[in-house]
Amino acid sequence: MNVLDVENVSASHNGALAISKISFNVREGDLLGIVGPNGAGKTTLFRAILGLQNYHGKIKLFGYEGSQYASLLPMVGYVPQKVSLEPNFPATVYDVVEMGLLPEKKLDRGAKLIQNCGCCWNRIFGESSKNSEKIEKALEIVGLESLRDRRISELSGGEQQRTFIASALVKEPVLLILDEPVTGVDMEVQNKFYSVLRKINKENKITIIWASHDLTAISDHATKVACMNRDLFFHGEKEEFFSNKDLMKTYSESAMQMHMHNHSHEV
């Protein structure tokens, strides 16, 4: 069963076409790595899926559109590339993770819709976990237990990013969308994060879409790969992408072109 169907989706960013007629689907349990140079439209695509961006075409969650799509959307965990924080915002790490929690009512409604289309939803934290237990466990997963009472604005970029990952996990997502989630995070935490990613993908069958520039990480951890630069020019098994030299060449050239394009704009 497809968790996500993207059909002929086009969208603009700041008046310019950012993605053009993109179509692909994500199956239950996929760990899809999306690669593409800066400005390739990855974030615009994610924002369209999350209902934060106008688009043409069709996007379906578990085959649903419209109000049922909206009912399922809260069960999508999203970690953006960068969150701009008010410097003195008086929210602790615990407060921020707590914001991710969904009321049981919303989870039940979403779970029913998922079951109706023959799919299953596995909770990360177990059926009877209290909200406070979920928060503690999510903090443990990202290794932030000792910083739970610190203000988010006092933390380093990497620690903030881990807090947002915990906030996305605590909602017990059915789909996780991660936009370059480990940018600015040290190697040790990166490795821990990847092992968590694989664990929740394998054990809890959580479908994950993950944008990254790190081809090694994609090759090590993803099960499928999509490659885009405004258009989608590959979507399939990881092995196929990495063994196809022509594709790798096209990706490198496309990345280089985009780099030159951005550079000429800067000049």
Binding site: L52, A70, L73, D95
Partner: peptide, 17 residues
């Protein structure tokens, strides 16, 4: 709770319904 979420990050609040 929704007010805090909305104040902290309007987009995440919107995704959460």
């Amino acid at each position: 709770k929704p007010l805090l979420h909305f104040t902290f990050d309007e987009e995440q609040a919107k995704i959460n319904g």
